[in-house]
Design a protein around this nucleic acid. Structure first.
Lengths: 270, 270
DNA sequence: CAGTGGTCTAGACCACTGG
DNA sequence: CAGTGGTCTAGACCACTGC
């Protein structure tokens, strides 16, 4: 090292960059200290939300971002690390950092945790997807609450059956807020190859990032009898999912009913 | 920086420490490159397994570990970061890094994902736990396979009911390999306050680190009718869990049956 | 071969905890 | 106040990818 006296700070980004937006508030009761990399993280997140880089595309290199934000590479590195951990970005050594997407082969059906008892998903061939219906309707009280809408707001409602090896296994009822999905039709849904969430990305710029599921055991009703070919009253897995976009905005309510004679819901506890 | 010529490497841990165990194999077809911090990570993991530091205790500070392993603080930092991410260690700023434990108040019932429909767990008061039985038996074929034993090996078998607010909600059948849990009795189980996994840690030095669950909907049988006070045939959530210790050794098979009229299994998808 | 992410170091300083 | 983890920097070098 040089002969600098250690009282003189060699580097002091937080101080030096006081002219930027990175100042600590240091005002109210809670100091609300936020490290630099967290601020960089939200800046990247903002660009992500604004669609500056599309799903599947590469974002600028760490060096470029470091120059843009006037911080060291290590700091943007830490910001990107966290975003990658949250599955928002995908790092590929030697190639770059990419905006995560549901369209990639490797991570298709990332949110579907139902797997066949023997082997893994895919071993039984691709799923057959039949759209039963897709229509506009009014949000009931519980649907509205789940989607942060008001009762009576317009929603899109879809129903579909997923079959594996010719056997219907899953019935899903899906509710979407009408506004962000303007123009979505049954045909569009039926003809699209690949996961539904990939369609949402490419066609409506809506990216599902996180989801919460509530799981119960319920008896099959008439609808299940018809569409899943099961006898009324037998146990089904009820999976209610609310999917969220970047900023914790609920964007989809999905009620799934799973037959679990030959499949099971798989979960890993860390 | 100093006037060092950039061809001369200033720091080169991997080279300089060739005398240690950190050499790259660089022999077979796959180079099997392993970064330094990964090697540090397994060294720490080894100490953890060997019980050098007990659950709840602090491990040496980053500076001490860096000195011990002859690497920079940043490298042990990255190793510890990953172990903390895997819930094996717990960082506490200003205090130190601690061996994770199931006994801590905050993370009790880390693996139990059943929550009441309204509010969060705990709002309904503590669970009542009744040990129905606890005995030695022989592993059936499927139990043996789950625990990596041979059919007929001795196992400990326990059955208990968990009640919330006076209502029986969960029936659990638990199988443990006899050897590591020598001396475990029904009394020991019944009298222990706190999570079962905390007992395993303190009494048998067995730490459950990870678990896999298979979830199904099944009809209630006679046993459920008796112990959960439900009518035969109503849907129950069947949760089969295999819990693993550090090195992916299966150490517990647990078959849980959950009533889901007032509770649900909650899961977050990332 | 240039460009990307990934590793490693050394050192300064900050935030937090406890005695 | 000393000690701990947490942040930030600057710079060197390595591993991997594609052209």
């Amino acid at each position: 090292m040089q002969s600098s006296v250690d009282i003189v700070p060699e580097h002091s980004a937080l101080t030096a960059l006081t002219s930027e937006l990175k100042v600590q508030s240091a005002s109210s009761s809670t100091p609300a200290f936020s490290p630099l990399y967290q601020q960089i993280k939200s800046l990247i997140l903002t660009s992500l939300k604004a669609g500056e880089w599309k799903p599947g595309e590469a974002i600028p290199s760490e060096i470029e971002l470091a120059a843009r934000f006037k911080v060291s590479q290590g700091t943007v590195r830490k910001a990107i690390d966290e975003l990658a951990l949250e599955n928002l970005l995908l790092r590929r050594q030697g190639r770059g950092t990419f905006v995560a997407t549901h369209a990639e082969q490797q991570v298709q059906f990332r949110f579907l945790k139902l797997v066949p008892d023997r082997g893994t998903r895919g071993s039984e061939g691709p799923a057959q997807r039949d759209i039963i219906e897709c229509r506009r309707s009014r949000a009931s009280a519980d649907v509205a609450r789940a989607l942060a809408l008001r009762t009576g707001d317009t929603v899109l409602q879809a129903r579909r059956v997923l079959s594996f090896g010719g056997t219907p296994i899953i019935l899903e009822d899906i509710w979407l807020p009408a506004a962000p999905f303007k123009g979505l039709t049954a045909e569009r849904l039926a003809n699209y190859q690949g996961p539904m969430y990939a369609l949402f990305e490419t066609e409506f710029n809506v990216r599902m990032v996180r989801a919460e599921e509530k799981i119960r055991a319920i008896p099959a009703s008439d609808i299940h009898e018809q569409l899943l070919k099961v006898t009324r009253g037998i146990p089904l897995l009820s999976v209610e999912r609310i999917a969220y976009t970047y900023r914790d905005e609920p964007m989809e309510l999905r009620r799934g009913y799973y037959r679990t004679e030959t499949h099971h819901y798989h979960n890993t506890l860390g």
